[in-house]
Structures are given as C-alpha cells and as structure tokens.
Simulated scan of single mutants.
Amino acid sequence: MPGRYCSLVQASAPAFAPGLTAERLSALVRGHRMWVNGTVLHYCFLDRDGDASVIAVPGTAETRRVSWVGAKEQQDVVRECFEEWQGLGIGLSFVEVGDRSEAELRIGFQYGDGSWSTVGKDALRVGTGERTMNFGWDLTAPGERGTALHEIGHALGMLHEHQSPFAGIHWDDEAVFAELAGPPNFWDRERTFFNILRKLDGDEVNGSAWDPQSIMEYAFPPGLILEPEQYRAGLNPPGTLSPLDKEFALRWYPPLAAPEPPALVPFRSAPLRLGPGEQADFTVEPPQTREYTVGAFGDGDAVVVIFEVRDGEPRYLAGQDDGGTERNATVRARLVKGRRYFVRVRLYSSWGSGETAVMCW
C-alpha cells in the first residue's frame, strides 16, 4: 500500500557571508535552524471558525474553505508525542497555550493538505495567523502516531534521514516520481525531488551516519530503492524514536543545569569561554525601562536570544544570528524595570584566538 509522506515546507536557503572557511560554514549550516537550549516552545491548536484555507474546486471557477480545526482525539495524539520528546530529558520544553500570538508552533489539521512542518527556527518566520505544522490524515489510525513524532522532530530542527548523503541510497528515480504522483500523495516532480531524491549537504543532516530506524525516515515500498540491496524489497522503519534520534536531541538540547544563571549587568562584559556548539545563559533585571542592546563580542559566530519571563516561563522576545559575517550578533529590545529576562548565547564557531564576551548596554 502506498505510504503517505511528510512534505517539508520549502524555505529559502540561508545566505552566509562569502569567503568563510569550511569549518565556520559547516558550523553555521549545522546550527542555523536549531533553537537555543532552554527555549520553551509554546504550541497551540488552531480552533477558530475562521481557521481555514481557501482552495480552488477542481474543474470550476469556485473556491471553498477547508478547516484547520482538529478533533480532540487528533490533538491528544500530538500532545502525547510532545510529551514523549520532552520525556527524553531534553533542555527544551513544550507548553500548550490558547493564544496563537504566544505560540511559536501553530498546528492545524487540514485533511488533503498533507502532513508537514517548518524546521526549527524557521517557525519564527511564519505569521501568527498561519500554520507552522499541519496534519493531513487521521493520527489515531494504526501506525500513524509516528507522523506526529516525525513532525515534532522537524520542529526541533531535524531533517529527513533518507536524504542524508551518508545513506548511500540509489533510487529508481522514475519509479519514485510515478509512485508519489499517484494516491494518496499526488505530488508533482518538484515536490518529490525536494522531499525524497534531493541529497542534503553533509552538514545539514542529523548525524554522521544514516539511521534507517529513525523517526525521520520514511517507509518505502518495494521497487523504489536499487541500492543498498537489502532495501530493494522495501524500507520499513518502526515509527518510533530510535536510539540515534534520542542521542541527537540530547546532544543539541542537553538537560539544563540546575544552578541559577549569572546576572548580566548593564555596561559590564561577561566572558563566554565557549567551545563550538556550547551555550552560556544569563539573567537580566533592568535597572530602568528603556531600549537595551545585548551583543556578543570577539572572533566567533554566535546567535543571541532574549527571553522575557512571563507567568514563570521564558517567552521568546528577540534574537539575532550573525550569519557568519564579521559583525557580531546584537539584539535591541525594550526591557522593563521590575521584569526578568534571560539572555542565551550559543556559539557556532570560534575563528580567532581572542576570547568572546557578551554585554548589555
């Protein structure tokens, strides 16, 4: 039986500064979609009467509205899958909210639109009235719970395993195009190429080896894969989190240390002393209400994010990634006296001998 496949949202490729060393470019490509650790990802289910797509009626000039609202039993599957990822002990956490303006992840259930998600921080580029994730079929059907785990994996920053250059898959391209052109997917050649046949850059993939058991791996029927030979009869991952999936999540989002982060005092720099992929966290309690700038200094590529603590939770306020340019990442935001903020700095790579630091002013 043909499988129903996730169709990734096609986002524009990031533009990095020219002339970067291979090491710096690799670090930037690998990390640009990943959240800083300690982020609380708020999700909401789109449930208003007006939450719908307007689609054309085939063969006519008419349009009709197709709802994004999902039944409670569908939503419950997604809730359980957020809890499963959270249960690994990762440093990210997931909180359901009712206000879409407070949600980084906005989830719809439009049947016929496929199942898909933005990847990692790409969700922040989507307007608050739009979905960042959709489920296009019944998640309560046997074997379909893995769809929710898969799409949440994308929201964490993971990509499709079968597109890894380490997989060594030799496809029967025309058989793949024909398979996906028919029901239940009805994909054109461009979408099939983007989601299946296209090879990712080695720096983009989830790990240094192909994981055919990954939740991010599709199942494929016989006749599509020519090599490796053992998959000519089909590839059938279990639809659960594999050991390498768990390792990836915990490597990027390790459990947060219990001690309170140090305070970042205005006009006083704090050394970072970070290695590639490491992160430093600080608290800020502004002495007055005004526009502040928070910035990184030194010979390193980094992302700087400010969170405001509201109702006991850090809410994403602003962030900037220096994109490998010679300028350092700086963020301007209005901070309010009496409120509490977190500043989180993650280093992609260090390309000089000097120390890096962060300052609020």
Rank of each mutant, 00 (worst) to 15 (best):
I90V: 10
L105I: 14
R106Q: 05
R79N: 05
K121P: 01
I90E: 02
G108A: 01
G114V: 06
G114P: 14
W85I: 15
L124G: 12
S101K: 09
K72T: 15
E104L: 12
V95N: 01
E84D: 10
S115K: 01
G91M: 08
L124W: 12
S93Q: 15
G87T: 14
G70S: 04
K72V: 12
V119E: 08
V126M: 11
D113H: 10
I107L: 05
V78T: 11
Y111W: 13
D122I: 08
S93N: 13
E84L: 00
Q86R: 13
T128P: 14
R131F: 05
A71C: 03
Q75D: 03
E73W: 09
D99N: 12
T128R: 05
L105T: 06
E80Q: 15
D122Y: 11
E96K: 02
D122H: 11
E130N: 15
S93A: 02
E104A: 08
W85Q: 08
R100I: 02
D99W: 02
R131V: 08
K72N: 11
G87E: 07
R100H: 08
I107F: 03
I90M: 14
G120A: 00
E96W: 03
L88A: 08
E80W: 00
G120N: 06
S117K: 00
G114Q: 00
V69N: 04
E104G: 10
G114H: 05
S93F: 11
S115T: 15
G87N: 13
R100P: 07
D113G: 09
G87D: 03
V95P: 00
Q75R: 14
Q86A: 14
E96P: 13
G98P: 05
G70W: 06
G89S: 07
V77D: 05
E73R: 15
F82K: 09
V78Y: 01
W116V: 03
G108Y: 12
T128D: 06
R106M: 03
V69C: 06
V126D: 03
E80Y: 04
W85P: 01
R106N: 05
W85E: 02
G91F: 08
E80R: 11
K72P: 08
A123Q: 12
V69L: 10
E73V: 10
A71Q: 13
L124A: 02
G108M: 10
G98A: 02
G108K: 10
E104D: 06
T128N: 07
S115H: 06
G91C: 07
W116T: 03
T128L: 00
E102N: 02
V69F: 12
L88N: 11
G114N: 02
V97W: 03
V119N: 12
R125E: 09
R79E: 02
K72R: 10
R79V: 13
S93I: 07
S117N: 01
E102Q: 12
E80A: 14
G112F: 02
G127Q: 14
G91N: 06
I90C: 06
K72S: 13
D122C: 12
A71L: 07
A71W: 03
G70M: 05
E80G: 15
R79K: 06
W116Q: 01
G70V: 12
E96L: 09
G114E: 00
F94G: 01
F94E: 00
L105M: 14
T132R: 04
G129D: 15
G108E: 10
G70C: 11
E73A: 11
F82A: 08
T132H: 09
E102D: 11
E73T: 13
C81E: 09
R106A: 04
E73C: 07
E73M: 08
F82H: 04
G112C: 00
G91V: 11
